[in-house]
Design a protein around this nucleic acid. Structure first.
Ligand SMILES: [Mn+2]
Ligand SMILES: [Mn+2]
Ligand SMILES: [Zn+2]
Ligand SMILES: [Zn+2]
Lengths: 146, 146
DNA sequence: TCTCAATTTGTAATGATTACAAACCAATCA
DNA sequence: TGATTGGTTTGTAATCATTACAAATTGAGA
């Protein structure tokens, strides 16, 4: 339906503009990958992203997903979340926030936390460029399911 | 010199007792690995541990280092630090504390921090079993070296 | 249309970790 | 003492996410 088409295009244009504003040439693949990543609340892995987009972009290569995510990170519009030890997850939320991983359902939850140094002296003079806060355990949903 | 020998033995016995107290049969390899890990402030990797002990234990296998560290972690006397994306580091400090990684010299620094949830509701009912707090940047030493 | 640089793609290499089975060891028992 | 046995150690092979690399494709300008 043409309304949907138009809506998609507007959205894609919007994402394209956003990429351009951040110094990234908005190729079809990059737009689709950014759209997917932004729309997903699951902090997907490369494999998840690749499999999700295979249908829309039959020629897509996994290397492109890796390359594109690296570009996003370099330009500061995405973040790598190394909360798993076997594969990296990605996030378009770039503000400082924590991640909780449920060891039962493997879901990742966002949360906001305030971190204050106990011994102010230890890191005095250190330049902090990145933070990661990871909690692990069992989420409420899995707890209640017993 | 016999005093040194005696000292070493006492120390090893001490570590052996500690392992036994934590339900771990104190084999030669396990004692040496725990001693090294405890004595090192660098949060060493499997490779570092393996190379450091090769001289003392010529038959040592890297698999043993992996196995042993897994036992330590299972029994709660060591911790895996996944602050690097390509290899895991290990720590005998099991109290909750943060780690700063200098991207220049790759050194890992310990620090204590207080974490308070901003939006208390988000993780209400969640069971938290493990926390990891990682800071990345440039340490004071590297900053001053310019 | 031609050119050129950037992007994409497929394949091969890398390297940390795990799987697995054989060898070894240390304690117990006949 | 010698056999048994279960846990520990060891070496090798497999796994698998990520990276390296070079060829193919694209697309904007001349
Ligand atoms: Mn997030
Ligand atoms: Mn530490
Ligand atoms: Zn859950
Ligand atoms: Zn440094």
């Amino acid at each position: 339906m043409s309304t949907n088409k138009a809506g998609d295009d507007m959205h894609s244009n919007h994402v394209g503009e956003f990429l351009k504003d951040n110094g990234i040439k908005p190729s079809y693949q990059r737009i689709k990958i950014y759209e997917y990543l932004m729309g997903s609340m699951t902090h997907p892995t490369v494999d998840t992203i690749y499999n999700a987009l295979c249908d829309q972009i039959p020629t897509l290569s996994k290397t492109t997903v890796y390359n594109t995510l690296k570009v996003f990170i370099d330009k500061g519009i995405a973040m790598a979340i190394t909360i798993d030890d076997n594969e990296v997850r990605y996030d378009t939320r770039t503000d400082v926030h924590g991640h909780f991983k449920c060891e039962k359902c493997n879901e990742i939850y966002d949360f906001k936390a305030n971190i204050e140094l106990e011994d102010e002296d230890v890191l005095r003079g250190f330049e902090i460029t990145k933070q990661q806060l990871f909690f692990y355990g069992v989420c409420k949903h899995c707890s209640e399911a017993k």
